[in-house]
């Protein structure tokens, strides 16, 4: 292979990794949040709806307040409120987690579409809003391969690069993580040693939805710069799959989302590479097929937190 084609291959691969990171990030953020939730024994099937509401809240916040960071803040607040409501329903009101989750998905779709139309009308051109732009990190972005792949992203991506290892550290190396996990594995035992099980679940539920909402806002403010109806397109469910696939650990989830992100990135790159491929729609199924294969390849070995899916009822 000549030097020219090798360097162009490296450049193409760097671009691919860059695209992979961008497509994986919303899923990774949502899945990271889900780890908190699921570690305490709560499964939120409604993360798709939470992401969608986060995506809209981010755009609405940025539009109304004129600053993209304030948009993210609005998304975080919205996520916190949703997490509070969700946990109230499944813990305090003892509603079925799956049922409430599905309701959240419907609610997310309905509310965001309604408010979007009320705010922006049925315009074909999306409103101009402040959004994230790629920022080249001095020196590092000039590195061969790594520069393009990792250091030409938006600020929100860099922030996520920092937050995700932090979450991993919290869940596995600190007392907080121990409390979370004990609540998920054996809530009664956790209660006996003085842990307030319900409060822990409330906090974890809120943090989880905040992550999900930021994942959605990443989609609308960093990947794109507008909101479209139903734009999450199943990413919440892919995040749920990623948590199972990644065995409830942040590093595992990272691997899973990078794999699923690669599916999307690949399908887009193949489309731009070869305009003759008439089966565009078939290529678009790639991330979903990969998710199924990933889940199947896991061959049922995944064992989640023991107390998953049930509210804690103190006796």
């Amino acid at each position: 292979m000549s030097a020219v084609s090798l360097s162009s291959f490296i450049a193409a691969f760097a671009n691919f990794v860059n695209a992979d990171i961008q497509t994986a990030m919303p899923i990774l953020l949502a899945a990271t949040g889900l780890i908190f939730n699921e570690r305490t024994g709560v499964v939120n099937i409604g993360v798709e709806g939470v992401m969608l509401m986060g995506a809209f809240a981010g755009v609405a916040g940025s539009f109304l307040l004129g600053n993209v960071w304030l948009g993210v803040l609005v998304a975080i607040v919205a996520g916190g409120i949703l997490g509070l409501i969700f946990t109230f329903l499944v813990e305090t009101a003892r509603a079925d987690q799956v049922v409430v989750g599905m309701a959240f998905n419907l609610l997310g779709l309905g509310l965001t579409t309604m408010i979007n139309r009320a705010m922006f009308g049925l315009n074909t051109t999306p409103p101009r809003i402040d959004s994230f732009h790629p920022v080249n990190i001095p020196v590092l972005s000039k590195l061969p391969f790594f520069g393009i792949a990792f250091f030409t992203h938006t600020y929100l991506t860099y922030l996520a690069f920092l937050v995700i290892p932090l979450v991993s550290f919290i869940v596995f190396k600190t007392n907080i993580g121990l409390v979370l996990r004990s609540v998920g594995e054996h809530p009664r035992a956790a209660d006996t040693v003085g842990i307030n099980v319900v409060r822990v679940r409330y906090i974890a539920g809120m943090v989880s939805c905040m992550f999900g909402a930021v994942g959605g806002a990443y989609l609308s403010l960093s990947q794109l710069n507008f909101f479209t109806e139903g734009m999450t397109a199943g990413r919440g469910f892919i995040a749920l799959a990623a948590v199972v696939f990644g065995k409830w650990s942040p590093v595992g989830v990272l691997g899973a989302t990078i794999l699923f992100g690669a599916g999307s990135a690949l399908s887009y790159q193949l489309q731009t590479l070869n305009s003759y491929i008439s089966s565009n729609q078939l290529l678009l199924t790639l991330p979903y097929v990969l998710t199924i294969l990933g889940l199947a390849g896991f061959a049922g070995k995944a064992v989640g937190p023991a107390a998953s899916g049930k509210p804690y009822i103190k006796e």
């Binding site: 099937i45 799956v98 199943g234 469910f237 892919i238 749920l240 799959a241 199972v244 979903y288 097929v289 998710t291 199924i292 889940l295 199947a296 390849g297 896991f298 061959a299 049922g300 070995k301 995944a302």
Partner: peptide, 12 residues
Amino acid sequence: FGSNEIITTVML
């Protein structure tokens, strides 16, 4: 494979 049907049906 023990794949959770909630996720597989949505992907399908």
